[in-house]
Amino acid sequence: MSFDLKTTVQPDAEFSPQQKKLNLLIEKIEQQKIDLAAWEKAQNDIQQHARKTLVPVYNELHIVLFQQLEQLWKHLHSSCFSKAEVVQLDEKIQHLAAYLKDSKALSEQEANTIEEIDTFYQQYAEHTQTKKAKKKPFVGSNPVFETSTQDIDNGFDEFADTDHWDSEQYSQAREQAKLKKQQEKREQAEKMAEQSLKMVYLKIAAVIHPDREQDESKKLEKTEMLQHANAAYEQQDLFYLLKLQIQIEQNRGATQKGLSLEQIKFYKLAFDAQSQQLDSQIDDIINSLVWSENAKIAVQKSKGKVQIPDLYKQIDTDTVAIKQQVKWEKERLKYMSRVKGLEMLLENGAL
């Protein structure tokens, strides 16, 4: 809302501890609204900055990693390696395929290749996991995978381990439960805000409706207030309506002293719901601007205190780090292009 609204009767009025807490909550929400407006304004600029600096470097990294994947897959099918080396190759190929699976930097043909390799490893892991006594040869649906069946037979022991899968499933379940709880909390806040919006608006309209006012000057004042209330209701601005209702109740009668405990309790619940909604909106914007794991970690460590300049700084930091990684991966790719170079990487654990 663009118009101003005072929520106190007198600057030096004495408020109860409950009313002081309520006023602090109002100040918090006012700051949240300012923060949300700033994030909404900065969102597009930050995205443009990332597209210009971070995304091209990420794309280059994915292209280099796909070239590594192709080389390793080719060598696995055409060259002879020890069982220990096959284990390293399997792990590296499976990791690259999983990492590149959702890449937007690769062509459709390259994406299909990654999907085939990733599917093969998943199927093979499931097959190995269900074996009870004797190992059985596994033939993939794509002929290109058949030649490497024996070579990779020993490369998936780690991924076939039951404890490994149970641990991964447990982590996924915990994350899903956390997200579900957050969603339920958000839905409760939205429901509370929606219910409060209509109730508060109807109460305000009943009290300040100008048709019930005989004094012309007060009638004009109430007409303006009702117009503001109507605009707030149309914009779903519960916060403004709550502040307006507090002002009306605080100014009703010279003998009335402040708000009742029941009124304060209602306002606190309604304001808490509004505050949660604003937090969720800000979090959604920040999450939409976070691409890298480093940025996600930085946001988590900030505990809701991340600022707009922090994301610009994180994007620049990530860009520098990825450029260095691209340089290293290109050097590694040179070794991977030759069997002897690959063997050197395997021998030194530098794959």
Results as ranks from 00 to 15, higher is better:
K21A: 12
L345N: 01
D284V: 06
W39N: 00
N154R: 12
Y201N: 01
L100S: 00
L202Y: 15
E221P: 05
N287K: 10
L244H: 01
K330A: 02
E168T: 05
K203D: 15
Q277D: 14
S275A: 12
Q122F: 06
K136I: 06
I297C: 07
I297T: 13
V144Q: 08
D102I: 03
R212F: 13
S103V: 00
T317R: 03
K131F: 11
T147K: 11
D45L: 05
L220W: 15
K313L: 08
L346Y: 01
R186H: 11
P11C: 07
Q214I: 07
H228C: 03
Q188N: 13
K6V: 07
E91D: 09
K219T: 04
D90T: 06
E108Y: 07
L238F: 01
E85S: 07
D279S: 10
Q300E: 11
E116Y: 06
N59A: 14
A37G: 08
T317W: 03
I29W: 00
D90S: 12
P137Q: 08
F120E: 03
Q314G: 04
R338Q: 12
E343T: 13
E60V: 03
L311Y: 00
F3P: 13
K136L: 09
S82P: 10
Q47R: 08
S103Q: 00
A189P: 01
Q276A: 08
E168H: 14
L69A: 02
D153Q: 14
D157H: 08
D4P: 05
W328I: 15
I308K: 03
Q182D: 08
M192P: 04
K340N: 10
L69Q: 00
Q324L: 15
V200P: 02
H75Y: 04
A133V: 08
I264T: 09
W73G: 07
Q183N: 13
A84C: 09
S217T: 11
P210S: 10
Q48A: 06
V326S: 01
E216D: 13
F239W: 00
E91P: 02
E347N: 14
P137H: 07
Y312L: 02
Q235N: 14
L65S: 02
